[in-house]
Simulated assay, not measured.
Amino acid sequence: MILIREFKFDAAHNLTAYRGKCERLHGHTYKLVVKIQGTPDSEGMIIDFVELKKIVEDSVLKKFDHSYINEIIPQPTAENIAEYIFKELYDVLKRDNCFLYEVEIWETADCGVVYRGEKGCN
């Protein structure tokens, strides 16, 4: 099974190694989708949605929400943001019955990235 939880955060960035309008400072309301693969535990859950929300808030949203992402990631493309968030969450979400399967980052309603980690990470 794969458990899914969505989050939103607002942040600004600019792409310094890019030539085009996105090299200028601008912002997005990002959608973050976290997917956990696993089997239900003795309580019938892969992971409690409340616990997952707290972990994502503490590990990611407190850093990213209303931030200038360039201060966290030098070239904050959607690809680099997804990889960074995956790496921040992977160890803290690892359990006997589940692991972080993938992270999606959506900059707009129709532009996003999926990151599933490096080969052998799961």
Rank of each mutant, 00 (worst) to 15 (best):
R24Q: 14
S59C: 10
L3Y: 01
P40E: 14
I72F: 07
G38V: 06
A82T: 01
H26F: 10
V113A: 02
D96A: 13
W106S: 12
Y30L: 05
N97W: 06
I36P: 00
Y68M: 14
M1L: 08
I47G: 08
A17Y: 13
E107H: 09
L93C: 07
K8W: 02
I73G: 03
K8G: 00
D96R: 10
E104R: 10
L89H: 04
N80K: 13
Y68I: 09
V60L: 01
K62R: 15
Y30K: 02
M1V: 10
K63M: 06
Y84S: 05
K53I: 00
D10C: 12
V56K: 08
E102S: 15
H66K: 11
E6W: 00
E79N: 03
H26Q: 07
K8P: 03
Y101S: 13
V113Q: 01
G120M: 09
I85T: 13
I69K: 01
F64S: 04
I85N: 05
P74D: 12
I46K: 03
E6M: 02
A82V: 00
F86C: 09
K31C: 03
A78R: 03
I46V: 14
L52K: 05
R95V: 02
H13Y: 11
A78V: 12
I81T: 05
I105D: 05
C98G: 14
I47R: 03
S42L: 10
G44C: 07
A78W: 00
L25R: 06
I85H: 02
L100H: 10
F64Q: 09
K53G: 01
V114A: 12
I73R: 01
E107L: 06
R24Y: 12
T108Y: 04
S59W: 02
G44Y: 07
K53H: 12
D10M: 00
I81A: 08
I73S: 03
Q37L: 11
F64V: 09
Y84E: 11
D96V: 07
V33F: 02
K54G: 02
I105F: 09
L93A: 02
D41L: 09
T39C: 11
E107Y: 01
V34N: 11
F9I: 04
K35C: 14
E57F: 12
Y30P: 11
D48C: 02
A11S: 15
P76V: 03
K54Q: 14
P76I: 05
A17Q: 15
M1N: 13
D110K: 15
R24A: 10
L100K: 12
I47P: 10
A82I: 07
E43Q: 15
C98L: 00
V50Y: 09
G20M: 09
H28Y: 06
D110Y: 08
M1T: 13
G27V: 10
D65E: 09
G117I: 00
F86N: 12
L93E: 04
L89S: 07
T29V: 10
I55R: 12
Y18V: 07
D91E: 13
I47F: 00
C98Q: 08
D10P: 05
I4F: 09
S67D: 08
R24I: 02
F9C: 04
Q37M: 12
L89P: 14
F49M: 11
G112T: 08
F86W: 10
Y18F: 14
R5C: 00
T108G: 00
G38Y: 05
N70C: 13
E88V: 07
